[in-house]
Design a protein around this nucleic acid. Structure first.
Ligand SMILES: [Zn+2]
Length: 502
DNA sequence: CGCCTTTGACCGGCGC
DNA sequence: GCGCCGGTCAAAGGCG
């Protein structure tokens, strides 16, 4: 069901994209949804045109031509009344369709553009690394010496043949840690392969550290993203009553992608409330009002196998985000941790709110979609504006004791207003408050801030994925957010913002 | 029968 | 050194 829904959403996206590209040479205003609407109507009336080859503008003109003479003809009162009655409704619907189509188009343009940018970024990184494979002088991170990651598609494939055999055959305890294991294998490997694996391993190590977590408000226990996952573990988080589940991609034999899924649901809270005092209940209620049915899905790694189109959205975005974050945040982590905090804010035409955050130990891109009503990306057009006040992305859970020691990195949170209006034109709204940032920031901030579409693209894509299943959108009135506004240059407040690893 | 979930155990890292 | 904690493994069982 979830997969079906996701596939449907993505197919819809692709479909709209195709139509958009088809009618792009024509007028830009027409919307794909509008096409369908009018095509239906017109086939009822005239049915002359072949549906595929028809352009939108032509259809629209046809319709208007059809409607207007009929209205002015006055030959038949019944027909006239009917038409005059129908006309406002149709026009209103047309307007809604237009709006939605524009939104969709904007989203898709953002997705594609950001994807292109990311790909270029990846290529640049690959080239840089190929040229300087041994130079790690760019502010080596404290924990692991990791180079800028290159294209991560084949990183695991090198390791896979050797590793899969040993992993399956040998008892696990002998080779406990992955790094150790790799080291041993490296020593046993021939020289040329050793060098290659060394590089691959470094990339892999760095890639494994990059994570992309998605917070979403969803009723479904898991968010189907098109991949097949097998659960391989479950742990009770320390401060969180809800356990954290560990999944592994099973579409390929040795796909390294892993996914953590922690849901903060109020189930256990309900059990607890009976015994607890009212104040505690208040706290619990508060917390659960914030966190109830919020899923935090953390992806890690890159698939080494072809993916179904449904999974491509999530996979590509996550891998791109990971690589981008890694490429940038490694140098920036040093600069930022010492001095100050970086923040960038952009008002973007989408309904989701995304937070890109890079923490020092685990560079993480966090997408917070808990504020995005599903109507933004779903097929149902909502003319209303959700005037959500600019809330901060994460509902800070004050009860949890985050032990995330330091949060050094950049913090790009994009607030988005409902794009139902005309704000979905791609060029203008992006990059509002971003320009000045790139100077003070190192390459990471530059990379991300230069392409703020990325956030929106992710948000849009994922909202489109998740969109259908969420029904409740409470006002989430907790104004307790101190993350962006007050989190400046303070590591303590940053804990709130980065609570995805609780 | 194969795949998946469950679940207890284990192991390395880290703080004390 | 010890214990906690997060992450992983793998045996056992369920499900189609
Ligand atoms: Zn995979």
């Amino acid at each position: 069901m979830d997969t079906a829904h996701l596939g449907g959403a993505l197919l819809a996206l692709v479909h709209s994209h195709r139509r958009m590209s088809a009618d792009d040479p024509g007028s830009r205003r027409r919307s794909s949804v509008e096409v369908d609407f009018f095509s239906d109507d017109k086939t009822c009336r005239e049915r002359e045109p072949p549906p595929g080859s028809l352009r939108l503008d032509i259809k629209k003109e046809d319709l208007t031509i059809n409607l207007l003479p009929a209205a002015t003809r006055r030959s038949d009162d019944d027909d006239n009344n009917k038409i005059s009655n129908e006309l406002p409704g149709l026009q209103a619907e047309l307007g809604r369709m237009n709006e939605e189509n524009q939104r969709l188009r904007g989203m898709l343009a953002q997705v594609s553009s950001s994807y292109q940018a990311l790909q270029m970024h990846l290529v640049a990184l690959m080239q840089a690394q190929a040229q300087q494979p041994h130079r790690q002088a760019i502010a080596p991170p404290p924990r692991h010496s990791s180079i800028l990651p290159s294209s991560n598609n084949d990183q695991e494939q090198q390791r896979q043949p050797s590793n899969s055999s040993t992993e399956v055959g040998s008892p696990r305890r002998s080779s406990s840690t992955g790094n150790k294991d790799d080291d041993l294998q490296q020593q046993a490997a021939p020289g040329w392969l050793q060098a290659a694996e060394g590089r691959q391993q470094q990339q892999e190590a760095s890639m494994r550290k990059a994570r992309v977590s998605v917070r979403a408000r969803s009723e479904a226990p898991i968010i189907a993203d098109g991949c097949q996952w097998r659960k391989y573990g479950q742990k009770m988080a320390k401060g969180n009553p809800c356990p954290r589940a560990y999944y592994r991609c099973t579409m390929a034999n040795a796909c390294p992608v892993r996914k953590q899924l922690v849901s903060t649901s109020g189930k256990l809270f309900d059990q607890l409330t009976d015994d607890w005092s009212t104040e505690d209940c208040m706290y619990q209620v508060q917390r659960c009002a914030d966190d109830r049915s919020i899923l935090i899905t953390t992806y890690e790694g890159t698939h080494n196998h072809p993916l179904p189109p449904a999974a491509m959205a999530m996979a590509s975005t996550t891998s791109a985000a990971a690589s981008m974050l890694l490429s940038g945040s490694m140098p920036s982590a040093d600069a930022n941790s010492s001095s100050s905090f970086l923040q960038a804010r952009a008002v973007l035409p989408s309904n989701g709110m995304a937070t890109i955050s890079a923490s020092a130990p685990f560079p993480t891109v966090t997408l917070d979609l808990t504020h995005g009503p599903p109507a933004a990306a779903a097929a149902t057009a909502r003319p209303q504006f959700h005037h959500v006040p600019p809330l901060q992305p994460l509902p800070p859970p004050p009860l949890y004791n985050h032990n995330q020691s330091k949060f050094s990195g950049l913090h790009l949170s994009s607030f988005s207003t409902d794009g139902g209006g005309a704000s979905s034109e791609p060029p203008p709204p992006i990059g509002v408050g971003i320009g000045g940032l790139a100077d003070t920031v190192s390459a990471a901030a530059a990379a991300i801030t230069a392409d703020p579409n990325f956030t929106v693209a992710l948000a849009a894509a994922i909202t489109s994925i998740i969109g259908g299943q969420q029904q409740q959108q409470h006002g989430d009135g907790q104004a307790n957010h101190n993350n962006v506004t007050s989190s400046s240059n303070n590591t303590a407040t940053s804990n709130n913002t980065n609570s995805e690893t609780q």
